[in-house]
C-alpha cells in the first residue's frame, strides 16, 4: 500500500489513511525520506488521524521517520493523533513517541512553518 506524499510550497504533506502493516511502515519511511531529499522540502507534516492503533513498532517507525527526515533537512510535525491512541501510547511506556506534534493538519502546517523560520533565524 503506497502512501501518497504531496508537495505544497516548501512542505511535504502526507496522510496515513490505511491500517499499516510493518512492511508498509518501513516502505513509508523510505519513500518519505527520499522525497524530502529529492524535493528539498523544508518541512514534513504527517497526518495520522486515521490510525486507530499505534503500537510500539509503529511508534518507533514514526520516530525514526521523523529523525531521518530531520537529518536530510526537514522539520517534522505529526498531527491528528487520536486521543485514545495518545492515551495508550503514554500508558505503554515512556517516550514511545518523541516528535513535534499538533492537534490537526491546520495546526501542524503552522507549527512546521514556525519550526522552519526558527531554524532559519538560528545563527550559523
Amino acid at each position: 500500500m503506497k502512501i501518497p506524499i504531496l508537495q505544497l510550497k516548501n512542505l511535504l504533506l502526507t496522510s496515513i489513511q490505511v491500517e499499516l502493516t510493518d512492511r508498509d511502515a518501513i516502505d513509508f519511511q523510505y519513500d518519505v525520506v527520499h522525497k524530502v531529499a529529492e524535493t528539498g522540502a523544508e518541512g514534513l507534516v504527517i497526518d495520522i488521524t486515521a490510525m486507530d492503533v499505534v503500537d510500539s513498532f509503529i511508534a518507533r517507525a514514526l520516530n525514526e521517520t521523523a529523525r531521518m527526515a530531520r537529518l536530510v533537512g526537514a522539520e517534522v510535525v505529526i498531527c491528528g493523533m487520536q486521543p485514545t491512541v495518545a492515551l495508550t501510547l503514554v500508558e505503554m511506556g515512556r517516550e514511545l513517541i518523541d516528535v513535534e506534534s499538533a492537534l490537526n493538519l491546520d495546526h501542524g502546517f503552522e507549527k512546521a512553518q514556525r519550526l522552519i523560520s526558527a531554524k532559519k533565524r538560528m545563527p550559523g
Binding site: 510493518d22 486507530d52 492503533v53 499505534v54 503500537d55 513498532f57 487520536q82 492515551l87 495508550t88
Partner: peptide, 17 residues
C-alpha cells in the same frame, strides 16, 4: 469504550508481532 478498544487492539498487535 474507545479507550479500552484501542488498548486491547494495541496489546494484541504487540503480542502477535
Amino acid at each position: 469504550g474507545p479507550a479500552d478498544q484501542t488498548r486491547l487492539a494495541t496489546a494484541i498487535s504487540e503480542l502477535t508481532r
